[in-house]
């Protein structure tokens, strides 16, 4: 059982999320008041925090900024919002959000994303080493091959293991073919593959913060691929 806190000033959304997650055996804490939620988090740990962005008393960005300052807080954070601008997605990730889901809620995607995040949570306490602070942008280029696309994300073959919940970006002509901008991605799992001379791992990465139009284009692309495959067969 996981303890999940959801903070959203819209009570209808809270009830809907609770209705989806509680029957799966999760303990759900719902809060319309971000300040009150913050007080609860000071005392009680959670396994996942789900936060809206547009709230009257405190924005979701300010909320996660405050939450990250809590000494004992180490839960993953899912932003759940109607805002889909790339700058909002980037701001959320820079503030420390684990993932970002755009409303309206698609229940299968919502439940799937949460399972992937909770499953990805480290079971052991994080060891902290001494560090020298810096803030320099960098990119890592890893050769990869995309082998499948779903509404949830991409299945790829790579030479490198990607840790769970690591954020990444993938450059591929596939996105232009689908008709979407290069998306933000989060690694969900990496499995070793055999009998592949080029790649060592199969990695599943989840889309972060895709808007409704992008989701529609992905669905259409998947349908077109299925039709083309059937015709070819």
């Amino acid at each position: 059982m996981s303890r999940i806190m959801i903070v959203d000033d819209d009570f209808d959304t809270l009830r809907y999320c609770e209705g989806l997650l509680a029957p799966q055996g999760n303990e759900i804490l719902i809060h319309t008041d971000a300040h009150r939620a913050l007080k609860v988090l000071e005392q009680h740990p959670v396994d996942l925090l789900i936060v809206d962005i547009v709230m009257p008393a405190m924005s979701g960005f300010d909320f996660i900024h405050a939450v990250k300052k809590l000494e004992q807080f180490n839960a993953p954070i899912l932003m759940l919002t109607g805002r889909s601008a790339p700058k909002d997605v980037l701001t959320a990730l820079e503030l420390g959000a684990t993932d970002y889901l755009v409303k309206p809620i698609d229940k299968d995607l919502f439940v799937g994303k949460i399972a992937s995040i909770i499953g990805a949570r480290p079971r052991t306490p994080e060891v902290r080493f001494a560090q020298g602070a810096t803030d320099v942008s960098a990119e890592i280029a890893i050769p990869a091959r995309i082998t499948a696309v779903s509404e949830m994300g991409l299945t790829m073959r790579t030479r490198h293991y990607l840790d769970r919940n690591v954020h990444t970006k993938v450059d591929s002509p596939l996105f232009e073919e689908i008709g979407i901008a290069k998306p933000q991605l989060r690694a969900v799992h990496s499995k070793p593959v055999e009998n592949d001379a080029h790649y060592r791992y199969e990695v599943f990465v989840s889309f972060i913060g895709l808007d409704q139009l992008s989701m529609q284009r992905i669905r259409r692309w998947i349908i077109n691929r299925a039709i083309a495959t059937r015709k070819a067969g």
């Binding site: 000033d9 819209d10 209808d12 959304t13 809907y16 547009v54 919002t81 109607g82 409303k103 309206p104 809620i105």
Partner: peptide, 8 residues
């Protein structure tokens, strides 16, 4: 708010 909840 209405766009989010009604679609959900």
């Amino acid at each position: 708010k209405f766009a989010g909840s009604s679609g959900t």
